[in-house]
Design a binder for these strands. Structure first.
Lengths: 226, 226
DNA sequence: TCGCGCCCGTTACACTTTGATACATGCGTC
DNA sequence: GACGCATGTATCAAAGTGTAACGGGCGCGA
Protein backbone atom coordinates (compact mmCIF):
# COMPACT_ATOMS: atom_id res chain seq x y z
CA UNK A 1 0.00 0.00 0.00
CA UNK A 2 2.81 2.35 0.85
CA UNK A 3 4.79 1.60 -2.25
CA UNK A 4 1.87 2.73 -4.38
CA UNK A 5 2.12 6.07 -2.71
CA UNK A 6 5.34 7.32 -4.16
CA UNK A 7 4.69 10.92 -5.05
CA UNK A 8 7.63 12.86 -6.39
CA UNK A 9 7.08 16.51 -5.77
CA UNK A 10 10.59 17.70 -6.43
CA UNK A 11 11.10 20.39 -3.83
CA UNK A 12 12.75 19.53 -0.55
CA UNK A 13 11.69 20.72 2.85
CA UNK A 14 14.62 23.10 3.14
CA UNK A 15 13.50 24.93 0.05
CA UNK A 16 10.49 26.31 1.82
CA UNK A 17 11.99 29.59 2.82
CA UNK A 18 11.06 33.11 3.66
CA UNK A 19 12.60 36.19 2.21
CA UNK A 20 14.32 38.21 4.90
CA UNK A 21 14.22 41.91 4.07
CA UNK A 22 17.61 43.50 3.94
CA UNK A 23 17.71 46.34 6.40
CA UNK A 24 20.16 49.22 6.91
CA UNK A 25 20.56 49.80 10.60
CA UNK A 26 23.13 49.79 13.35
CA UNK A 27 21.94 46.29 14.17
CA UNK A 28 22.09 44.45 10.88
CA UNK A 29 20.89 40.87 11.17
CA UNK A 30 23.26 37.94 10.80
CA UNK A 31 22.35 34.70 9.04
CA UNK A 32 23.31 31.39 10.61
CA UNK A 33 23.01 27.83 9.37
CA UNK A 34 22.33 25.01 11.81
CA UNK A 35 21.95 21.29 11.37
CA UNK A 36 19.13 19.06 12.58
CA UNK A 37 19.60 18.30 16.27
CA UNK A 38 21.65 21.38 17.05
CA UNK A 39 20.43 23.77 19.68
CA UNK A 40 19.83 27.46 19.11
CA UNK A 41 19.49 28.11 22.83
CA UNK A 42 18.53 26.49 26.10
CA UNK A 43 15.98 27.33 28.76
CA UNK A 44 17.21 30.04 31.14
CA UNK A 45 20.08 30.99 28.85
CA UNK A 46 20.84 34.65 29.00
CA UNK A 47 19.22 35.87 25.79
CA UNK A 48 21.49 37.63 23.29
CA UNK A 49 19.57 37.04 20.09
CA UNK A 50 16.12 36.35 18.78
CA UNK A 51 15.95 34.28 15.60
CA UNK A 52 13.74 34.45 12.57
CA UNK A 53 13.48 31.14 10.76
CA UNK A 54 14.36 31.55 7.09
CA UNK A 55 14.17 27.85 6.19
CA UNK A 56 13.75 24.59 8.07
CA UNK A 57 11.85 23.89 11.27
CA UNK A 58 12.81 24.27 14.93
CA UNK A 59 11.24 22.81 18.03
CA UNK A 60 10.58 24.82 21.20
CA UNK A 61 10.31 22.68 24.32
CA UNK A 62 10.15 22.91 28.08
CA UNK A 63 11.54 20.22 30.31
CA UNK A 64 9.67 19.37 33.51
CA UNK A 65 11.00 18.18 36.81
CA UNK A 66 9.39 14.76 36.41
CA UNK A 67 11.28 14.24 33.16
CA UNK A 68 8.36 14.86 30.87
CA UNK A 69 8.72 17.20 27.95
CA UNK A 70 6.19 19.65 26.58
CA UNK A 71 6.57 20.86 23.03
CA UNK A 72 5.56 24.50 23.26
CA UNK A 73 5.64 25.23 19.56
CA UNK A 74 7.27 24.52 16.24
CA UNK A 75 9.06 27.34 14.48
CA UNK A 76 8.31 27.39 10.77
CA UNK A 77 9.80 29.66 8.11
CA UNK A 78 8.84 33.23 8.91
CA UNK A 79 8.41 32.64 12.64
CA UNK A 80 10.45 34.49 15.22
CA UNK A 81 11.66 32.37 18.14
CA UNK A 82 13.59 33.09 21.28
CA UNK A 83 11.72 36.12 22.57
CA UNK A 84 12.98 36.33 26.16
CA UNK A 85 11.37 37.21 29.47
CA UNK A 86 13.50 39.02 32.02
CA UNK A 87 16.45 38.72 29.66
CA UNK A 88 16.40 34.93 29.57
CA UNK A 89 15.12 32.36 27.13
CA UNK A 90 12.06 30.53 28.40
CA UNK A 91 12.37 27.32 26.36
CA UNK A 92 14.80 24.93 24.75
CA UNK A 93 15.15 25.39 21.00
CA UNK A 94 16.65 22.87 18.61
CA UNK A 95 16.41 22.24 14.91
CA UNK A 96 14.45 19.23 13.66
CA UNK A 97 15.55 19.85 10.09
CA UNK A 98 18.46 21.83 8.66
CA UNK A 99 17.76 25.50 9.21
CA UNK A 100 18.81 28.93 8.17
CA UNK A 101 18.01 31.54 10.79
CA UNK A 102 18.49 35.28 10.99
CA UNK A 103 19.71 36.52 14.36
CA UNK A 104 18.68 39.90 15.74
CA UNK A 105 20.18 41.34 18.89
CA UNK A 106 17.86 41.17 21.90
CA UNK A 107 19.14 44.52 23.10
CA UNK A 108 16.85 46.08 20.52
CA UNK A 109 13.78 44.76 22.34
CA UNK A 110 14.01 47.39 25.03
CA UNK A 111 15.45 50.20 22.93
CA UNK A 112 12.66 51.33 20.65
CA UNK A 113 14.41 54.64 19.96
CA UNK A 114 17.47 52.98 18.47
CA UNK A 115 15.76 51.20 15.63
CA UNK A 116 12.01 51.84 15.45
CA UNK A 117 11.51 49.63 12.40
CA UNK A 118 13.17 46.67 14.04
CA UNK A 119 11.23 47.26 17.22
CA UNK A 120 7.98 47.39 15.29
CA UNK A 121 8.92 44.11 13.65
CA UNK A 122 9.71 42.47 16.97
CA UNK A 123 6.48 43.73 18.51
CA UNK A 124 4.58 42.32 15.57
CA UNK A 125 6.35 39.01 16.06
CA UNK A 126 5.52 38.91 19.76
CA UNK A 127 1.85 39.60 19.08
CA UNK A 128 1.73 36.92 16.39
CA UNK A 129 3.41 34.54 18.79
CA UNK A 130 0.74 35.18 21.40
CA UNK A 131 -1.94 34.35 18.88
CA UNK A 132 -0.23 31.15 17.82
CA UNK A 133 0.14 30.06 21.42
CA UNK A 134 -3.55 30.74 21.98
CA UNK A 135 -4.41 28.67 18.93
CA UNK A 136 -2.37 25.84 20.41
CA UNK A 137 -4.56 25.83 23.53
CA UNK A 138 -7.57 24.87 21.48
CA UNK A 139 -5.72 21.75 20.36
CA UNK A 140 -4.65 20.77 23.86
CA UNK A 141 -8.06 21.38 25.39
CA UNK A 142 -9.94 19.50 22.72
CA UNK A 143 -11.22 16.18 23.93
CA UNK A 144 -10.55 13.34 21.54
CA UNK A 145 -7.13 12.30 20.30
CA UNK A 146 -8.49 12.12 16.76
CA UNK A 147 -9.67 15.73 16.96
CA UNK A 148 -6.39 16.92 18.40
CA UNK A 149 -4.43 15.15 15.70
CA UNK A 150 -6.68 16.45 12.95
CA UNK A 151 -6.29 19.98 14.32
CA UNK A 152 -2.53 19.58 14.30
CA UNK A 153 -2.46 18.33 10.73
CA UNK A 154 -4.72 21.22 9.78
CA UNK A 155 -2.14 23.57 11.29
CA UNK A 156 0.62 21.95 9.25
CA UNK A 157 -1.56 22.14 6.16
CA UNK A 158 -1.95 25.88 6.61
CA UNK A 159 1.64 26.56 7.58
CA UNK A 160 3.77 24.33 5.34
CA UNK A 161 1.35 22.81 2.84
CA UNK A 162 2.50 22.76 -0.78
CA UNK A 163 -0.11 22.65 -3.55
CA UNK A 164 0.07 19.42 -5.54
CA UNK A 165 -2.57 19.35 -8.19
CA UNK A 166 -5.97 18.97 -6.60
CA UNK A 167 -4.45 18.05 -3.23
CA UNK A 168 -1.94 19.51 -0.81
CA UNK A 169 1.39 18.02 0.15
CA UNK A 170 2.69 18.28 3.70
CA UNK A 171 6.12 16.99 4.66
CA UNK A 172 6.12 16.16 8.35
CA UNK A 173 9.44 17.29 9.76
CA UNK A 174 8.69 16.02 13.26
CA UNK A 175 8.26 12.47 14.52
CA UNK A 176 5.34 10.94 16.45
CA UNK A 177 6.86 11.74 19.82
CA UNK A 178 7.14 15.41 18.93
CA UNK A 179 3.51 15.49 17.86
CA UNK A 180 2.51 13.62 21.01
CA UNK A 181 4.36 16.03 23.28
CA UNK A 182 2.82 18.93 21.40
CA UNK A 183 -0.72 17.59 21.83
CA UNK A 184 -0.43 16.11 25.30
CA UNK A 185 -0.78 12.53 24.06
CA UNK A 186 1.42 9.46 23.79
CA UNK A 187 3.14 8.49 20.54
CA UNK A 188 1.01 5.35 20.37
CA UNK A 189 -2.18 7.34 20.52
CA UNK A 190 -0.94 9.67 17.80
CA UNK A 191 -0.15 6.63 15.71
CA UNK A 192 -3.65 5.27 16.22
CA UNK A 193 -5.20 8.60 15.27
CA UNK A 194 -3.16 8.92 12.10
CA UNK A 195 -3.99 5.34 11.16
CA UNK A 196 -7.67 6.19 11.60
CA UNK A 197 -7.29 9.25 9.36
CA UNK A 198 -5.65 7.09 6.70
CA UNK A 199 -8.36 4.46 6.99
CA UNK A 200 -10.97 7.15 6.47
CA UNK A 201 -9.05 8.35 3.39
CA UNK A 202 -8.68 11.82 4.86
CA UNK A 203 -4.92 11.76 4.36
CA UNK A 204 -2.37 9.51 2.70
CA UNK A 205 1.07 8.98 4.15
CA UNK A 206 4.17 7.31 2.77
CA UNK A 207 7.13 5.82 4.57
CA UNK A 208 9.06 9.09 4.48
CA UNK A 209 6.44 10.93 6.53
CA UNK A 210 5.25 12.78 3.48
CA UNK A 211 1.54 13.38 3.72
CA UNK A 212 -1.09 14.20 1.13
CA UNK A 213 -4.29 15.75 2.36
CA UNK A 214 -6.95 13.95 0.35
CA UNK A 215 -10.04 15.42 1.98
CA UNK A 216 -9.39 18.95 3.14
CA UNK A 217 -12.97 19.50 4.31
CA UNK A 218 -13.14 16.29 6.32
CA UNK A 219 -9.89 17.19 8.05
CA UNK A 220 -11.16 20.61 9.07
CA UNK A 221 -14.49 19.21 10.24
CA UNK A 222 -12.71 16.73 12.45
CA UNK A 223 -10.46 19.48 13.74
CA UNK A 224 -13.47 21.61 14.58
CA UNK A 225 -15.17 18.74 16.34
CA UNK A 226 -18.24 18.85 14.10
CA UNK B 1 -16.88 20.94 58.83
CA UNK B 2 -17.28 23.99 56.71
CA UNK B 3 -18.69 26.12 59.45
CA UNK B 4 -15.59 25.50 61.55
CA UNK B 5 -13.58 27.03 58.75
CA UNK B 6 -14.69 30.60 59.03
CA UNK B 7 -11.53 32.65 58.73
CA UNK B 8 -11.98 36.38 58.72
CA UNK B 9 -9.07 37.99 56.95
CA UNK B 10 -10.59 41.41 56.51
CA UNK B 11 -9.49 42.45 53.07
CA UNK B 12 -11.74 41.85 50.13
CA UNK B 13 -10.69 40.59 46.73
CA UNK B 14 -11.08 43.98 45.13
CA UNK B 15 -8.54 45.45 47.49
CA UNK B 16 -5.74 43.52 45.86
CA UNK B 17 -4.57 46.18 43.53
CA UNK B 18 -1.57 47.35 41.62
CA UNK B 19 -0.25 50.85 41.57
CA UNK B 20 -0.44 52.29 38.09
CA UNK B 21 2.34 54.79 37.49
CA UNK B 22 1.09 58.20 36.46
CA UNK B 23 2.66 59.08 33.18
CA UNK B 24 2.90 62.34 31.25
CA UNK B 25 2.50 61.62 27.60
CA UNK B 26 0.35 62.35 24.62
CA UNK B 27 -1.41 59.11 25.34
CA UNK B 28 -2.34 59.30 28.99
CA UNK B 29 -4.08 56.18 30.25
CA UNK B 30 -7.72 56.18 31.26
CA UNK B 31 -9.08 54.24 34.22
CA UNK B 32 -12.33 52.34 33.83
CA UNK B 33 -14.44 50.42 36.33
CA UNK B 34 -16.31 47.31 35.24
CA UNK B 35 -18.61 44.94 37.07
CA UNK B 36 -18.43 41.17 37.25
CA UNK B 37 -19.87 39.65 34.10
CA UNK B 38 -19.24 42.69 31.91
CA UNK B 39 -17.14 42.32 28.80
CA UNK B 40 -14.03 44.34 28.07
CA UNK B 41 -13.92 43.12 24.49
CA UNK B 42 -14.93 40.24 22.25
CA UNK B 43 -12.99 37.97 19.92
CA UNK B 44 -12.30 39.62 16.55
CA UNK B 45 -13.26 43.05 17.84
CA UNK B 46 -11.24 45.77 16.22
CA UNK B 47 -8.75 46.57 18.98
CA UNK B 48 -8.69 50.15 20.23
CA UNK B 49 -7.26 49.62 23.71
CA UNK B 50 -5.14 47.26 25.72
CA UNK B 51 -5.98 47.06 29.41
CA UNK B 52 -3.84 46.75 32.48
CA UNK B 53 -5.71 45.21 35.41
CA UNK B 54 -5.44 47.43 38.48
CA UNK B 55 -7.77 45.40 40.69
CA UNK B 56 -10.08 42.43 40.22
CA UNK B 57 -9.75 39.46 37.86
CA UNK B 58 -10.75 39.03 34.23
CA UNK B 59 -11.19 35.89 32.18
CA UNK B 60 -9.81 35.46 28.65
CA UNK B 61 -11.64 32.82 26.63
CA UNK B 62 -11.98 31.45 23.13
CA UNK B 63 -15.18 29.97 21.86
CA UNK B 64 -15.03 26.96 19.55
CA UNK B 65 -17.33 25.95 16.76
CA UNK B 66 -18.58 22.91 18.65
CA UNK B 67 -19.68 25.12 21.52
CA UNK B 68 -16.84 24.28 23.86
CA UNK B 69 -14.97 27.04 25.59
CA UNK B 70 -11.27 27.25 26.35
CA UNK B 71 -10.12 29.58 29.09
CA UNK B 72 -6.88 30.99 27.70
CA UNK B 73 -5.83 32.87 30.80
CA UNK B 74 -6.95 34.81 33.84
CA UNK B 75 -5.92 38.44 34.10
CA UNK B 76 -4.77 39.31 37.62
CA UNK B 77 -3.77 42.72 38.98
CA UNK B 78 -0.71 43.91 37.09
CA UNK B 79 -1.44 41.87 33.97
CA UNK B 80 -1.97 43.47 30.58
CA UNK B 81 -4.76 41.94 28.51
CA UNK B 82 -6.09 42.58 25.04
CA UNK B 83 -2.87 42.62 23.05
CA UNK B 84 -4.18 42.31 19.50
CA UNK B 85 -2.96 40.48 16.40
CA UNK B 86 -3.57 42.13 13.05
CA UNK B 87 -5.44 44.90 14.85
CA UNK B 88 -8.06 42.61 16.33
CA UNK B 89 -8.60 41.04 19.71
CA UNK B 90 -7.97 37.31 19.72
CA UNK B 91 -10.13 36.34 22.71
CA UNK B 92 -13.23 37.19 24.66
CA UNK B 93 -12.54 39.08 27.87
CA UNK B 94 -14.97 39.51 30.74
CA UNK B 95 -14.66 40.33 34.41
CA UNK B 96 -15.22 37.59 36.99
CA UNK B 97 -14.98 40.07 39.85
CA UNK B 98 -15.40 43.86 39.95
CA UNK B 99 -12.40 45.37 38.20
CA UNK B 100 -10.55 48.60 37.72
CA UNK B 101 -8.58 48.64 34.50
CA UNK B 102 -6.31 51.16 32.85
CA UNK B 103 -6.82 51.53 29.11
CA UNK B 104 -3.94 52.34 26.77
CA UNK B 105 -4.48 53.10 23.12
CA UNK B 106 -3.47 50.26 20.80
CA UNK B 107 -2.17 52.75 18.27
CA UNK B 108 0.93 53.03 20.42
CA UNK B 109 1.83 49.41 19.72
CA UNK B 110 3.08 50.18 16.26
CA UNK B 111 4.41 53.68 16.92
CA UNK B 112 7.51 53.24 19.05
CA UNK B 113 8.73 56.72 18.17
CA UNK B 114 5.70 58.42 19.63
CA UNK B 115 6.07 57.19 23.18
CA UNK B 116 9.14 55.00 23.73
CA UNK B 117 8.43 54.43 27.42
CA UNK B 118 4.92 53.20 26.72
CA UNK B 119 6.17 51.02 23.90
CA UNK B 120 8.83 49.52 26.15
CA UNK B 121 6.14 48.79 28.70
CA UNK B 122 3.89 47.13 26.14
CA UNK B 123 6.76 45.03 24.79
CA UNK B 124 7.58 43.93 28.30
CA UNK B 125 3.92 42.99 28.79
CA UNK B 126 3.84 40.98 25.59
CA UNK B 127 6.98 39.07 26.54
CA UNK B 128 5.61 38.34 30.00
CA UNK B 129 2.38 37.21 28.41
CA UNK B 130 4.26 34.75 26.23
CA UNK B 131 5.95 33.28 29.27
CA UNK B 132 2.67 32.93 31.15
CA UNK B 133 1.07 31.20 28.19
CA UNK B 134 4.01 28.81 28.04
CA UNK B 135 3.63 28.06 31.73
CA UNK B 136 0.00 27.25 31.06
CA UNK B 137 1.01 24.55 28.57
CA UNK B 138 2.76 22.64 31.30
CA UNK B 139 -0.53 22.48 33.20
CA UNK B 140 -2.52 21.29 30.21
CA UNK B 141 0.06 18.70 29.20
CA UNK B 142 0.37 17.25 32.67
CA UNK B 143 -1.20 13.83 33.00
CA UNK B 144 -3.24 13.53 36.14
CA UNK B 145 -6.16 15.74 37.04
CA UNK B 146 -4.80 16.03 40.59
CA UNK B 147 -1.48 17.32 39.26
CA UNK B 148 -3.16 19.78 36.95
CA UNK B 149 -5.34 21.10 39.73
CA UNK B 150 -2.40 21.36 42.14
CA UNK B 151 -0.43 23.26 39.51
CA UNK B 152 -3.31 25.65 39.06
CA UNK B 153 -3.67 26.29 42.77
CA UNK B 154 0.10 26.82 42.95
CA UNK B 155 -0.29 29.47 40.26
CA UNK B 156 -3.02 31.20 42.27
CA UNK B 157 -0.87 30.94 45.38
CA UNK B 158 1.96 32.76 43.65
CA UNK B 159 -0.21 35.33 41.91
CA UNK B 160 -2.86 36.31 44.44
CA UNK B 161 -1.86 34.62 47.69
CA UNK B 162 -2.13 36.75 50.83
CA UNK B 163 0.05 35.91 53.84
CA UNK B 164 -2.04 34.82 56.82
CA UNK B 165 0.17 33.90 59.71
CA UNK B 166 2.01 30.69 58.93
CA UNK B 167 -0.25 29.95 55.96
CA UNK B 168 -1.33 31.68 52.79
CA UNK B 169 -4.84 32.75 51.91
CA UNK B 170 -6.13 32.49 48.36
CA UNK B 171 -9.56 33.76 47.39
CA UNK B 172 -10.73 31.84 44.33
CA UNK B 173 -12.47 34.36 42.09
CA UNK B 174 -13.44 31.75 39.49
CA UNK B 175 -15.81 28.80 39.72
CA UNK B 176 -15.16 25.12 38.99
CA UNK B 177 -16.22 25.41 35.36
CA UNK B 178 -13.69 28.17 34.77
CA UNK B 179 -10.93 26.08 36.30
CA UNK B 180 -12.05 23.06 34.28
CA UNK B 181 -12.02 24.99 31.00
CA UNK B 182 -8.60 26.35 31.91
CA UNK B 183 -7.14 22.89 32.60
CA UNK B 184 -8.94 20.89 29.93
CA UNK B 185 -11.04 18.95 32.45
CA UNK B 186 -14.68 18.73 33.45
CA UNK B 187 -16.05 20.59 36.47
CA UNK B 188 -16.75 17.26 38.17
CA UNK B 189 -13.14 16.16 37.86
CA UNK B 190 -11.92 19.47 39.25
CA UNK B 191 -14.28 19.08 42.15
CA UNK B 192 -12.98 15.59 42.84
CA UNK B 193 -9.38 16.78 42.69
CA UNK B 194 -10.02 19.63 45.12
CA UNK B 195 -11.83 17.26 47.45
CA UNK B 196 -8.78 14.99 47.36
CA UNK B 197 -6.49 17.92 48.21
CA UNK B 198 -8.72 18.79 51.16
CA UNK B 199 -8.76 15.17 52.33
CA UNK B 200 -4.98 15.17 52.25
CA UNK B 201 -4.97 18.38 54.29
CA UNK B 202 -3.01 20.20 51.60
CA UNK B 203 -5.57 22.98 51.45
CA UNK B 204 -8.66 24.03 53.37
CA UNK B 205 -11.64 25.57 51.67
CA UNK B 206 -14.74 27.27 53.02
CA UNK B 207 -18.14 27.81 51.48
CA UNK B 208 -17.13 31.15 49.99
CA UNK B 209 -14.35 29.65 47.87
CA UNK B 210 -11.74 31.06 50.18
CA UNK B 211 -8.79 28.72 50.36
CA UNK B 212 -5.98 28.34 52.85
CA UNK B 213 -2.86 26.56 51.69
CA UNK B 214 -1.95 24.38 54.64
CA UNK B 215 0.96 22.49 53.11
CA UNK B 216 2.80 24.63 50.61
CA UNK B 217 5.49 22.01 49.93
CA UNK B 218 3.01 19.20 49.32
CA UNK B 219 1.12 21.39 46.87
CA UNK B 220 4.24 22.19 44.87
CA UNK B 221 5.37 18.56 44.87
CA UNK B 222 2.04 17.46 43.49
CA UNK B 223 2.20 20.24 40.91
CA UNK B 224 5.66 19.09 39.83
CA UNK B 225 4.53 15.49 39.56
CA UNK B 226 7.11 14.28 42.09
C1' DT C 1 -41.86 35.74 55.09
C1' DC C 2 -42.37 31.79 52.62
C1' DG C 3 -42.06 29.13 48.55
C1' DC C 4 -40.07 28.50 44.19
C1' DG C 5 -36.65 27.86 40.69
C1' DC C 6 -31.90 28.25 39.42
C1' DC C 7 -26.97 27.78 39.80
C1' DC C 8 -23.15 25.73 41.87
C1' DG C 9 -20.66 22.16 44.10
C1' DT C 10 -20.39 17.40 45.37
C1' DT C 11 -20.86 12.46 44.96
C1' DA C 12 -21.93 7.85 42.72
C1' DC C 13 -21.99 4.72 38.89
C1' DA C 14 -21.36 2.92 34.20
C1' DC C 15 -18.85 3.72 30.13
C1' DT C 16 -15.26 5.39 26.95
C1' DT C 17 -10.86 6.77 25.94
C1' DT C 18 -6.27 6.80 26.73
C1' DG C 19 -1.93 5.09 28.80
C1' DA C 20 1.32 1.27 29.63
C1' DT C 21 3.34 -2.59 28.10
C1' DA C 22 4.79 -5.72 24.88
C1' DC C 23 5.98 -7.14 20.44
C1' DA C 24 6.35 -7.01 15.21
C1' DT C 25 7.97 -4.47 11.19
C1' DG C 26 10.96 -1.80 8.30
C1' DC C 27 14.89 1.04 7.47
C1' DG C 28 19.60 2.66 7.85
C1' DT C 29 24.16 1.97 9.69
C1' DC C 30 27.95 -0.43 11.22
C1' DG D 1 23.64 -9.90 9.22
C1' DA D 2 23.27 -7.50 13.86
C1' DC D 3 21.91 -3.58 15.92
C1' DG D 4 19.52 0.76 16.97
C1' DC D 5 15.72 3.68 15.98
C1' DA D 6 11.11 4.95 14.66
C1' DT D 7 6.69 3.31 13.71
C1' DG D 8 2.58 0.35 13.86
C1' DT D 9 -0.40 -3.00 16.30
C1' DA D 10 -2.56 -5.56 20.14
C1' DT D 11 -3.94 -6.23 24.87
C1' DC D 12 -5.09 -4.83 29.51
C1' DA D 13 -5.49 -1.56 33.19
C1' DA D 14 -6.21 3.07 34.74
C1' DA D 15 -8.02 7.46 34.50
C1' DG D 16 -11.44 10.72 33.15
C1' DT D 17 -16.01 11.63 31.26
C1' DG D 18 -21.06 11.60 31.02
C1' DT D 19 -25.07 11.26 33.36
C1' DA D 20 -27.75 11.55 37.11
C1' DA D 21 -29.00 12.74 41.61
C1' DC D 22 -28.71 15.47 45.83
C1' DG D 23 -28.13 19.52 48.85
C1' DG D 24 -27.19 24.34 49.85
C1' DG D 25 -27.34 29.14 48.82
C1' DC D 26 -29.36 32.90 46.42
C1' DG D 27 -32.63 35.89 44.13
C1' DC D 28 -37.28 36.64 42.93
C1' DG D 29 -42.06 37.01 43.31
C1' DA D 30 -46.31 35.92 45.57
Amino acid sequence: MHSALHFDAGRTQSEIRVRIPRRRTLSDPVTRRIQAGQHLFHERDSAHFVYQIASGVVRLTRLQKDGRRQVIAFGFPGDVVGLPADGRHTTECDAISPCEVVAHRCANLMQPERDPDLHRFLMQSALDDIRFLQDHFLMLGRRLALEKTAAFLELLLDRIGEPLGAYTLVRLPMNRSDIADYLGLTPETVSRAITELRTRKVVALDDANTMIVLDDDALRELADGT
